[in-house]
Every structure is written in structure tokens, then in C-alpha cells.
């Protein structure tokens, strides 16, 4: 990601939004660069939707300022901001046909009807809905509605695209398909995109960078790989994927670095190997730590097998890809767990 070289498109400068005495967003500072796909990820109530609403102009900041293209937009109403927004439930106008829905943003920008028709046909083709212009939104499937919503947000070529839980209403298969499509559109239009979601898969797949929010504050901002591999805090570690946090391991965690104070050791389940106690050691065993424990539970999940192993004071989750010739352990079996010392991370408690 060379995004740091690109100019900033959106800047949040210490933005706070209060609802009564409760801050929905507090002291948030964030830079989104031109052409970047940034995802704001967080559980419900973390302030991610408020952040998006602030950016969209539906909510005004109580403190701080928001700059778009270097200009303050705190006092600019949403209809003068020139953004495309895809709403959670799509917000397609139920009384207008697909074509009229798509024309709406063009009409508001005073574009002539011949030009409008041309652009509508072009975008309909782009989202593979050529023959659907005359339909009402209620006559479309969820995936088709999603694509109309996306087309409507993009048709006026806004410099910024905002997505509010864009794929939340779709079923799993359709969602994966739309993720690919969304990524393609983003690349093609090169549009600065801010997406809000609570779905970590969506965030990891689509984004150049992810902002994890918690209780109105930014917990960490990084590229997906960095965020997953080197979470800064325990919250991030737990929110993105699964994490073993060693609270009271009962053994000394070995690491190549010194454990900073105020942190706990964290290890991803897929980084841990499981073997019978008597199985031969790895060749690089001096780089590894191994402990023994008892299988408490085994969960079979298609391509994966998950073990819950009691070792020391903690229950350690181990995730193993199913392969032929593997030894399968049952609850009560003694096992040896081992991992590379370099895979251990220290996260803020």
C-alpha cells in the first residue's frame, strides 16, 4: 500500500459527537487518502455509523472539524457534498422505477434528459441490469436491488462513495459474489470509498485499510494483514478472528522480544500445531515452544478441525486444516501443542 503518498481526500480533525451527555464519537482523527478503500469496523454501538453519518452530513459534529478536499464541510448540508451513498437497506425510492431512481442524482445536478438516458443505460449495462430499467424496486431480488443502489451512488461520478453495511442484507453466497463486484467497481472508478461494517470478512476482503472502532474511539488503523497479524490491543485481536489470550498460562511464554508492561500474550489458533505427546519433535524445535495439555473438546467444521485444549490455566483453541493421514484426538486425550516463538504477539490488555 503506497497510499501514504497519495493526497488526503477526507480528514477528521478531533471530531466529537455527543448525543445528550453520551459521546457517540469522541475525539476522532482520521485521514482517508484519494482512491483509498477504507473500512470502519466495529461492534454495534462503537460509533462507526455515526462516523459515516458525520461524513455524509446527516449529523453535525459537536466539536472538531471534517475536511473534504481540504475544505471544512461541517456547515455544508448533505445535498451539497457530492457523495454517493449506498444505504444499509438500499433506500431505493419505492415509487420510482429503476431508471427514474438512477436518473434522480443526475436530475438534481441539472443534467439534460438526453445525457441522463445515456448515462443510465451505460451504468445499467455495467451492473448487468440492462433490461431492468422499467421495473419497480420491489420487483427486484436483493442482489439486484443492491446493484441498483450501487449504480445510483456511482452514476453522477462523485469523488467519494460511502457504504453503510452494503452487503448486510444479502445471503452468504451472494455476498461473496458482490464483494468481488464491489472490489472491481472500486478499482475501475478509482473512487475514494468509506465503508462501515461489522462483518470482518467483508472488511478484510475489500479494504486497503481498516479502522477498528470501539466505544466511539479508534482502536487501531492499519492494512488488513497488519491488523490481523499484529493487533495492537486485545479488543482488536478478539474482534478480528479468533485469539488465544494467555491470562494465567501456568508456564512461561517464550518470545524473541521482551514483553512490554501492560500487555498480554496472544497467539492465533491456526499458528498452533497439535500432536501426540510421543510424536517426534520438529527439526527447528529450538525456535518453538511446546506444552502438553488435555483435549477438552473437538469441533469439526468442514475444512477445519478445532480443538479446545486445557493447558496450564487457560483453555487454548487450536485450529487445524483437515488433511488425510492426520491423527484425530478425542476429548480426554493427552496432546502436545507447539508453536513458533516468533508467532507470539503482545497486545495491550
Amino acid at each position: 500500500m503506497q497510499s501514504s503518498q497519495l493526497p488526503a481526500q477526507i480528514e477528521f480533525c478531533s471530531v466529537t459527537k455527543m448525543y445528550g451527555p453520551i459521546p457517540a464519537v469522541s475525539n476522532l482523527s482520521l485521514i482517508v487518502r484519494r482512491g483509498e478503500f477504507l473500512t470502519i469496523l466495529g461492534p454495534s454501538g462503537s460509533g462507526k455509523t455515526t462516523t459515516l453519518m458525520l461524513l455524509a452530513g446527516f449529523v453535525t459534529p459537536s466539536k472538531g472539524d471534517i475536511l473534504i478536499g481540504g475544505k471544512s464541510v461541517a456547515a455544508v448540508p448533505s445535498y451539497r457534498r457530492d457523495q454517493g451513498i449506498v444505504f444499509q437497506s438500499y433506500a431505493l425510492f419505492p415509487h420510482l422505477t429503476v431508471r427514474r431512481n438512477l436518473e434522480f442524482p443526475l436530475e438534481m445536478r441539472g443534467i439534460r434528459s438526453a445525457e441522463r438516458a445515456k448515462r443510465v443505460e451505460r451504468i445499467l449495462k455495467r451492473v448487468h441490469l440492462n433490461d431492468f430499467g422499467g421495473r419497480m424496486p420491489s420487483q427486484l431480488s436483493g442482489g439486484q436491488q443492491q446493484r441498483v443502489a450501487l449504480a445510483r451512488a456511482l452514476i453522477a461520478d462523485p469523488p467519494i462513495l460511502l457504504l453503510d453495511e452494503p452487503l448486510g442484507a444479502l445471503d452468504r453466497n451472494l455476498r461473496e459474489q458482490m464483494q468481488v463486484e464491489l472490489k472491481g467497481l472500486h478499482k475501475e472508478f478509482g473512487i475514494t470509498t468509506v465503508c462501515v461494517t461489522h462483518d470482518q470478512d467483508e472488511a478484510l476482503t475489500l479494504s486497503d485499510r481498516i479502522v477498528v472502532m470501539r466505544e466511539g474511539r479508534i482502536e487501531q488503523t492499519d492494512a488488513p494483514e497488519v491488523l490481523y497479524d499484529r493487533p495492537a490491543t486485545r479488543f482488536v485481536a478478539n474482534f478480528l478472528g479468533e485469539a488465544n489470550i494467555f491470562e494465567n498460562p501456568g508456564f512461561k511464554i517464550q518470545s524473541d522480544v521482551v514483553q512490554p508492561s501492560g500487555t498480554v500474550a496472544m497467539l492465533r489458533p491456526e499458528r498452533i500445531g497439535v500432536a501426540a505427546p510421543a510424536a517426534p519433535q520438529h527439526a527447528d524445535s529450538d525456535l518453538r515452544q511446546s506444552v502438553t495439555g488435555t483435549v477438552a473438546d473437538m469441533i469439526y467444521a468442514g475444512p477445519l478441525r478445532k480443538y479446545h485444549v486445557r493447558a496450564g490455566g487457560d483453555l487454548i483453541v487450536v485450529r487445524e486444516h483437515v488433511a488425510s493421514g492426520q491423527q484425530i484426538f478425542r476429548p480426554g486425550d493427552e496432546v502436545r501443542l507447539e508453536w513458533l516463538r516468533s508467532d507470539v504477539r503482545f497486545v495491550a490488555a
Partner: peptide
């Protein structure tokens, strides 16, 4: 659904146009 109004506004319709084109017909 008030998001319909927000959607109209995000597409450049001012409050009056939003009311006339979206809220009122619905």
C-alpha cells in the same frame, strides 16, 4: 423510511425538493 430522504439529499436534492419528490408522493 427516513433513509429515503437521506438518500435523496445525498444525491443533491435540497430539503424542499426532497419533500416534493420523495416524501410527498410516498
Amino acid at each position: 423510511d427516513r433513509r429515503l430522504e437521506q438518500a435523496a439529499m445525498s444525491m443533491g436534492a435540497g430539503p424542499l425538493w426532497t419533500f416534493i419528490r420523495v416524501t410527498l408522493p410516498l
